[in-house]
């Protein structure tokens, strides 16, 4: 028998051993840690990992070397102008763009977007995800609100703090939640990249979205 014959049999890969590998697989998640609710995200990742019984380590990211070996990155809530300035000064914008899986909440969603309205003159986003976001679109702090919302992942309570609005989504973007006619959660899973953008702060109330993100990171790693 020639070797081509073996190949033509097209046996499926050994799923049992692959499964065995995923169970023990360890992933590393980074949280951009210049500023914002970093500790809350680190806590949420740890709790989500416990719930999923998966092996996840989570590290704060402040410079280039912190980005090596990351399977996923979380850009937390905070001030997007500050994130942008500090990323630029650190020269890590390009490196962040190479990361395959990114979750952005509030300011993080602005960072992920292709385009943001009401940003400062020199502010540039990562332009990774095919969405448009309007900064502080609900108004100032007095208009911040909390609400029970329903998402494709289930019902939850969400905090909207000087929140942005997701005003446009591209064709590869799937909407995960809406609230009063506004898109508040969406994901883009294409070309081996996975991005998840949320207008609110799941890290303050639930691990649902962190579990979802970890699932995707495991599947993509």
């Amino acid at each position: 028998m020639r070797w081509q014959d073996w190949k033509s049999a097209r046996l499926p890969p050994n799923t049992r051993s692959a499964e065995f590998k995923t169970v023990n697989k360890k992933i590393q998640i980074g949280v951009l840690a210049f500023q914002g609710d970093v500790a809350e995200h680190i806590e949420a990742v740890k709790n989500a990992a416990v719930k999923l019984r998966r092996n996840v380590s989570v590290v704060p990211v402040r410079e280039q070397r912190d980005l090596t070996g990351l399977n996923g990155l979380i850009i937390p809530g905070g001030e997007s102008t500050t994130f942008y300035k500090l990323c630029q000064r650190e020269g890590i914008f390009g490196e962040i763009k190479k990361i395959k899986n990114i979750l952005g909440t509030c300011a993080g969603a602005i960072m992920l977007s292709k385009n943001a309205q009401n940003k400062t003159k020199d502010q540039v986003t990562l332009q990774l995800m095919d969405v448009e976001v309007a900064r502080n679109a609900y108004g100032r702090q007095n208009d911040s609100f909390e609400a029970d919302i329903s998402t494709t992942l289930g019902a939850m309570h969400a905090m909207f703090i000087r929140a942005p609005k997701i005003t446009r989504t591209g064709k590869n973007v799937r909407v995960l939640a809406e609230h009063e006619g506004e898109i508040i959660a969406c994901e883009e899973d294409s070309k081996g990249k996975y991005y998840l953008a949320l207008a609110f702060h799941p890290e303050l109330t639930t691990t649902l979205f962190h579990e979802h993100f970890l699932h995707k990171v495991f599947a993509n790693s």
Partner: peptide, 22 residues
Amino acid sequence: LKQAKGTFALKAGLARMLKGGV
């Protein structure tokens, strides 16, 4: 409440977003 403004969680929440900042 189903939806609320001005709650303590929202007030303290904004401060959380300012952490690590100047």
